[in-house]
Simulated assay, not measured.
Amino acid sequence: MNCVTLAEVALKTHQRNPQEWSAKPFIYVDIESVDRILKRIENPKQLIGSEAPSRARKVVNENDVLVSTVRPNLNAVAKVSAAMNDEICSTGFCVLRPDQKKLDPDYLFYFTRHPSFIQYLTDRATGASYPAVSDKIILEAKIPLPPLPEQRRIADLLSRAEAALHKRREAMRLADELLKSVFLEMFGDPVRNEKSWEVKSLEDSCERKGQYGSGASAIPFNNAKPRYIRITDINEDGTLNNDCVSPSTDEAEWADCILKDGDILFARSGATVGKTYHYRKQDGFTIFAGYLIRFRPNPKILHPEYLFYFTKTEAYNKWVKSKQKVVAQPNINANQYGNELILPMPPLEMQRQFAVTVEKSEKLKEKQRKSEKELENLFGALIQGAFQQ
């Protein structure tokens, strides 16, 4: 099959400085705006020109494909919708604007998700702590170029397979929403506390104060070592992604960071501050990194499932946002989590009843995850075969 470089089938793009129109509103897409699992723009920022960061420069049009130049192994890519036409993205993206006389936008989008493209960028990334590639490297990548009708046929096939995968994921999301509703029905709103439960601080509800994780750097996963959980490994729903790494140091440095069943981790810094993860023993031999804080619920008064789903409530999200406003860089330390986060404390037996409901839901979700995995494998096989050179 004929192969060409992306530069040969991409149109030139341009930049614009929003600061030149200080009062004009615009939508800004940074790296964090792209959902790496769904491969789409989820949470772009609404700004005015005077608020534009220095990296807000690249103009995007409908059907452009954005490829993150930072940590290319994570494959943060997205296709620009009509709603984002003539808006701005970060210079941390390479904006691929397909010449639609030669290249179908959806075909290009799926190509940027192909393992060979990801590996091509990963192999050429430079910088140990902040690996990145240039736009030039991305544009030098070669793409198979069948006739446009064949490109559209391939894109349509992949789109239908992906739609089935999204439906499975949506079913799992709705199951999580149902549990949140059950939580509120059983325990009431945590702020109003209309059921007049006793209240305690997080620290007073746990066996010990919040503990920061290991400061070790990450290395490729090693079966002889534990999995090393970082903030970036935790999905929005509290599950773990597949980006497994291990700590670079020996056990003496991280022995006290080994997770135990029921531990809850809280993210303490950056855009993901407040995100939580509930460790269960089926997650295997695991430790946690320094930008996470561990709290271990006191089993006599606090059930881990109750605490975890408390952190999924709107009341908790508002508390996190209120703490973010006090400093320029969002940060909540162990003392703030431990002493300022207040929890209603319903009877432990009620918490256990809720945990039983969660367990039943998790069994159903486990079946859904297996189905999702099968669909992921199907999609992966289709995308693997679609771009063979």
Rank of each mutant, 00 (worst) to 15 (best):
P115G: 11
E162Q: 11
V191Y: 04
K360F: 14
C244L: 14
L158E: 00
N339Y: 09
F266R: 08
E62A: 12
H114K: 05
S50P: 05
A141F: 09
S22G: 02
A216C: 02
Q151I: 01
I219Q: 07
V80K: 03
G284H: 04
R124K: 15
A355S: 15
T232P: 00
E140Y: 00
S50C: 08
D204H: 12
S371Q: 15
K79W: 07
A83M: 06
H14Y: 15
N63V: 02
L265F: 03
A82S: 14
G188W: 10
G262W: 00
P247H: 13
D135R: 14
N75P: 02
D263H: 13
N63W: 04
Q324K: 14
N2I: 10
L38F: 03
A125Q: 10
Y306H: 06
I258R: 15
N193S: 05
N331V: 06
D283L: 03
R97K: 13
V77S: 01
G270L: 08
S322D: 15
P18D: 01
T311G: 04
K365D: 12
M345N: 13
Q388M: 12
Q211S: 14
A76W: 03
H114S: 11
S116A: 13
L103D: 05
L265R: 00
E374C: 11
L292D: 04
V29M: 03
E203T: 11
F308E: 05
Q336V: 09
I301V: 15
G188R: 10
A128K: 06
S246M: 03
V245M: 01
K79F: 07
A23W: 06
Q329I: 04
D30M: 04
I137P: 04
A161V: 10
E20M: 03
H303S: 13
D233W: 00
Q368K: 12
R173E: 13
H278W: 10
M345H: 03
E198M: 11
Q211P: 04
K318T: 08
C94V: 08
Y120P: 04
